[in-house]
């Protein structure tokens, strides 16, 4: 279980609180307008922002003081998910060994993941030689190889256009289902939340509200969500 226990985060004068939990394997969407604090919450979870107070617990273990790489989480940012000067094989290899001392078995795993993502044969290429969609898949390959129980997505693939984005999001959903990964997706797009998430957390006015079943929240939106969705 991922438990946010009386969590509070502060950035300058902005304060965000959250106090709820989700079971493992949940696909959760953090939904809200820009500047409401969705990304702040995600950065706090990932370990890029120190907690002002409260705890983050995963299966009962307090993660609050761990550096990002030691948390049971992998993260996809909005962009800059691949190092442009390294090849795909090296970019993916970093997930297995940050010193890039890769064994034959590691290379086999990289090839296997690339094949699963439809990127076979592209391992010697650099990101700039790939299409936007291929870059998105490669970034996904990196988090797959990290094989962490929680996957954080910060409005990923947003620059790719709606069709490609929705393709990649369903790929994430499939992969997460196969491995039982818990996914936290930050989005400002209600359509993403509807298509992807089992549960939705509304982030507004400095509070990340407790999660609600996706179908339920859209069937009967609370006033805050209704205001956000508009007429």
């Amino acid at each position: 279980m991922l438990h946010l226990d009386h969590l509070a985060l502060t950035v300058d004068n902005f304060r965000l609180t959250a106090n709820w939990s989700i079971p493992p394997g949940t696909k959760l969407a953090l939904l809200g307008g820009s500047g409401e604090g969705k990304s702040t919450l995600l950065m706090g979870l990932a370990g890029f922002l120190p907690l002002t107070s409260g705890r983050i617990l995963w299966q009962g273990r307090d993660l609050g003081h761990l550096p990002p790489a030691e948390r049971p989480m992998a993260i996809l940012f909005q962009d800059q998910n691949l190092f442009p000067h390294l090849t795909l094989a090296q970019n993916l290899g970093l997930a297995l060994n940050p010193r890039l001392r890769l064994t034959a078995a590691d290379h086999a795993r990289i090839a296997q993941v690339l094949e699963r993502l439809g990127l076979s044969g592209l391992s010697p290429r650099r990101p700039a030689d790939l299409s936007g969609g291929q870059q998105g898949r490669a970034a996904l390959g990196r988090v797959l190889l990290q094989a962490r129980p929680i996957l954080l997505l910060d409005e990923p693939f947003a620059a790719l256009g709606p069709a490609l984005k929705s393709d990649l999001l369903s790929l994430v959903a499939d992969l997460a289902a196969e491995t039982g990964t818990t996914v936290v997706l930050v989005t400002h797009d209600p359509a993403d939340a509807r298509r992807f998430a089992d549960q939705v957390v509304l982030v507004q006015g400095g509070v990340a509200a407790p999660p609600v079943e996706t179908d339920a929240i859209f069937a009967n939106p609370p006033p805050a969500l209704r205001a956000y969705l508009g007429p």
Partner: peptide
Amino acid sequence: RLAQAIGLQGRA
């Protein structure tokens, strides 16, 4: 952030 997320540090 990416480097931190994948634990790339020190000499590597």
